[in-house]
């Protein structure tokens, strides 16, 4: 179960550059669905119909893209200028290894040594203007031959398992992608009582752009997004919310910055969890946004976000509990298998 997450996490796919991860997902799901297709933006569609009569049409989404960088300039000394793609805290970029482009050209983001800094210099964060990617090129020509302007970069992070957790990059939202993939990989004797269109979307991190065209293309009755979301159950101030907590099960969002979750869907999912004895929690903040933000407003499509709690999203390496991931799959599957009964 975890090996799909591992493969997806290790794949590259910064917003606008999702080819590698899309090919990998397509390869993984194609034998388990009726058809797959890709639209002009790069969203990947998979159709899994049901034999049930008058079945509702459910749109399941997870975004393929991850935050990263784009090379935007070359200096005469061979160092590269860059901009973040998506919500990257530039304070996290210092002293990190980066992989650039399809060829995964290694680069590093360095900084002035502490030894040469003024007394109080370290007290202010390094601005993006002080950061460069060093690929070892000695001049501009060598640098742009290896890494042309516009090349995307991601953190060089390798997936790891450690007892009951896994560590890796891009769990936002490769955790959602692999969860959705698992849902599509049903046994021969299993069939959902709903008509499913699964879409692996592009460009979520730069403004929910891929998902913006889905509602009109798919015209679903319901929409469920699968996410890897902020787990803030870490040392923090007494008044600060943990958002979600690790090992407390998948999280249902009642509201975030872009959408209020459908109360009927929340009821159905929480009831299913109770009946099937699956732990779940609510996301205890209203921060962030997801693809359902731009989907649910297209005529009012009841929507819900189900998330796997992940510590340190949008950072080089996140952590998630395997049990939360498995429970998320389990809850999503049970809720879909029993969909008709409740709604």
């Amino acid at each position: 179960m975890i090996h799909i997450l591992e493969k997806f996490s290790n794949a590259i796919g910064v917003s606008g550059n999702e080819d590698e991860i899309r090919a990998l997902i397509e390869e993984t799901i194609k034998d388990h669905v009726e058809s797959v297709s890709v639209d002009f933006m790069g969203n990947l569609y998979a159709v899994k119909p049901t034999k049930a009569k008058n079945a509702p049409h459910v749109l399941l989404v997870a975004h393929m893209d991850e935050v990263g960088l784009m090379v935007t300039g070359t200096e005469s000394n061979g160092l590269l200028r860059f901009s973040p793609v998506g919500g990257v805290d530039s304070r996290l970029l210092v002293s990190k290894r980066i992989l650039l482009g399809k060829e995964r050209v290694p680069g590093v983001i360095g900084a002035k040594p502490i030894h040469l800094q003024d007394r109080n210099e370290w007290k202010s964060p390094l601005p993006l203007s002080a950061l460069y990617i060093d690929i070892g090129a000695s001049d501009e020509k060598e640098a742009s031959a290896k890494v042309p302007l516009g090349t995307f970069g991601t953190f060089q992070t390798v997936f790891e398992s450690q007892r009951d957790v896994v560590l890796g990059k891009a769990f936002d939202d490769r955790a959602g992608c692999s969860l959705l993939t698992e849902l599509l990989m049903t046994e021969d004797d299993e069939e959902y009582p709903v008509h499913i269109t699964a879409v692996f979307t592009v460009q979520e991190e730069v403004g929910l752009r891929g998902a913006s065209i889905l509602a009109e293309r798919v015209r679903p009755d319901y929409c469920i997004a699968f996410e890897g979301t902020t787990a803030g159950d870490v040392p923090r101030g007494p008044s600060e919310s943990p958002s979600t907590e690790m090992r407390k099960g998948p999280a249902l969002s009642f509201m975030d910055r872009t959408a209020i979750g459908s109360d009927k869907l929340i009821d159905h999912f929480s009831q299913t969890a109770k009946i099937k004895n699956i732990p779940y929690q609510y996301k205890k903040t209203v921060s962030g946004g997801t693809d359902i933000g731009v989907i649910h407003m297209k005529g009012g499509i009841p929507s819900l976000v189900l998330s796997v709690p992940v510590r340190y999203i949008h950072a080089p390496k996140g952590i998630l509990a395997v049990e939360d991931y498995k429970n998320a799959i389990c809850l999503a599957k049970e809720a879909l298998m029993n969909f008709k009964e409740v709604l």
Partner: peptide
């Protein structure tokens, strides 16, 4: 041997002004 990460607050949970702080 145990692996870990040095914790960070995702942008979604930061308060305004946090990005200016070390």
């Amino acid at each position: 041997i145990i692996r870990g990460v040095i914790g960070t607050t995702p942008p979604h949970l930061q308060k305004s002004g946090d990005t200016g702080k070390v």
